[in-house]
Design a protein around this nucleic acid. Structure first.
Lengths: 156, 156
DNA sequence: CTTGGTGCAAAACTTTTGCACGGAG
DNA sequence: CTCCGTGCAAAAGTTTTGCACCAAG
């Protein structure tokens, strides 16, 4: 895990200011793992009521440009962000919404194949893999009820 | 490739009406491959000026539910749709935006690994793999100028 | 002084929803 | 007649942008 410390240093090294807002945003991302812009916004507002959603987006755009955070679009709802770290991926359960981190090694064979066969330089930094986790697969059999509370699991 | 013919038959078999609008939408998807809802809308409007964007979305939702089209979120911009076919994937070049179809076999080893190691039933129906195609990789060296309209990039 | 970063407000964009009408079954 | 599907309009949600101000360099 690359702590926000490193991200903060990187920011300053390249000549960007390390403002309180940016520190709070980085901290919020670190604490929560995968977060949407709005979740960051709400979280930071708990301690700093004047935080603006536009600042969140602008900061995220900056961090993204500097490769300090990665952006993952989980389809449909809002884009989620995470501190950059070693390339890794996530299993995303479409039922309970839980995300399981996934080592990058699993994707190396695929990446090599794409490079050899197509000359395609795949950027497999942070891929969401949708599906149904083992827990939900077994629960689905006994309880047909769910569909409701599958929003912000994010136990990364 | 499953032509729209089959999709149309499927619609009727299950008891849905095969309206002109739905036919035009299916035709538009087939002609263009990956298309956004808005592109479908514009395309159909060339021959039928009263087409409504809501109808496009409602039709897409229906076709999606019936697994007649697949939905692919390329991050950031609008979701894209495609006629269902054999499970397959796409290489998406973040520079030129070109998409190259990719056989599902390449992903089978990964799917099996996820199943064995995590008990996770991955739904690898239609995965976009971002990166840089061989063409753009070589062109990037001589011409540094990028095209500006492509929102396809920056997906981590 | 000059510039970067913020807060506020409004816009832009994609997608969804309410409502009434018309045609198909 | 009873619904399904449509067109129109408005709403909802996410992300971007214009503008003025403040503070840092």
């Amino acid at each position: 895990m690359a702590g926000p410390k490193r991200a903060q240093e990187s920011l300053q090294e390249i000549g960007y200011r390390l403002t309180p807002q940016r520190m709070m945003i980085l901290a919020a991302i670190q604490e929560s793992g995968h977060v949407s812009a709005d979740e960051i916004y709400e979280k930071v507002r708990e301690e700093y009521a004047f935080m603006d959603i536009a600042t969140v987006y602008r900061t995220l755009a900056l961090l993204k440009k500097l490769h300090l955070v990665t952006e993952t679009d989980l389809g449909g709802a809002a884009t989620r962000y995470e501190l950059s770290a070693e390339p890794h991926h996530h299993l995303v359960c479409r039922d309970c919404g839980a995300t399981t981190p996934l080592d990058n090694d699993l994707f190396e064979p695929l990446r090599l194949t794409l490079k050899e066969r197509f000359g395609f330089a795949a950027e497999l930094e942070h891929l969401p893999v949708f599906g149904v986790c083992s827990l939900c697969a077994s629960q689905a059999k006994r309880s047909e009820r769910r569909r409701s509370g599958a929003r912000a699991g994010t136990a990364s």
